[in-house]
Amino acid sequence: MKKNTLEVKGLKTVFDSWQGTVRAVDDVSFNIEENTVFGLVGESGSGKTLTALSILRLIDPPGKITGGSVMFGGVDLLKENEVRLGAVRGNRISMVFQEPGSALDPVFTVGYQLREAIRCHRIVSRGCAEDLAIDSMRKVHIKDPGRVYRDYPHQISGGMKQRVMIAMALINSPELLILDEPTTALDVTIQAEILKLLEEIIAARKMSILFISHDIGLIARMCDNVGVMRKGKLIECQESKLILSDPENEYTSALLKSARALS
């Protein structure tokens, strides 16, 4: 039995509004074993991203986390104070967004932002941070990292931006990497390239990964275990091999059917 990197139990996140309470994440529980990939799949609005943000406790008002626990490295992240949590975010748990275009600050160079990612968590000299940044770009197969280092985000392509975001997420060697629809905003050829890169990262098995996507085929291919979400609830949690051949839930089989109808 492997050790669990992340144990989510009974996680509940609600949004209060004058029209009533929306249960965005409703009693979600799952575990991510060490160095495995856990996929969260579901239609848009099913609460996949909010689950990820709740794990990092980055829910803004009017939303709030009302219950459950998120055990990571022996502590409950939901009970940790802000300072300690700041040391976990981006360092031991990092995240890649759907939209690489807007996730980079337009007024600073790529290099500056990579350096910032390092210096948020470690005290290193500027030159050392630069070496680390260029090295991390090389790892995600950015050609000519020295040039990209000095470029502003508008000077590089969307695929390149996503590579930079991945490099930034990996730069502090996190124990858990959250990939939130990492290829959805990219066009098909770039998607394939980024997926190849992600497969490489997964194959290296140096960290646990939470992979969020609406594409059940992709999830089944990339992940060891899969959770299916609908309306804030985790309705099925299975090994990925089993979910394709023998889905327990009706919704899961409907999802599979629609995916097959498309392809």
């Binding site: 980055l58 975010r89 996730a103």
Partner: peptide, 17 residues
Amino acid sequence: ERDFVAASRIMGAGGSW
């Protein structure tokens, strides 16, 4: 509300940063 602010928060940056 822009994503780079959320990205920065996820990276562990605090309010003043």
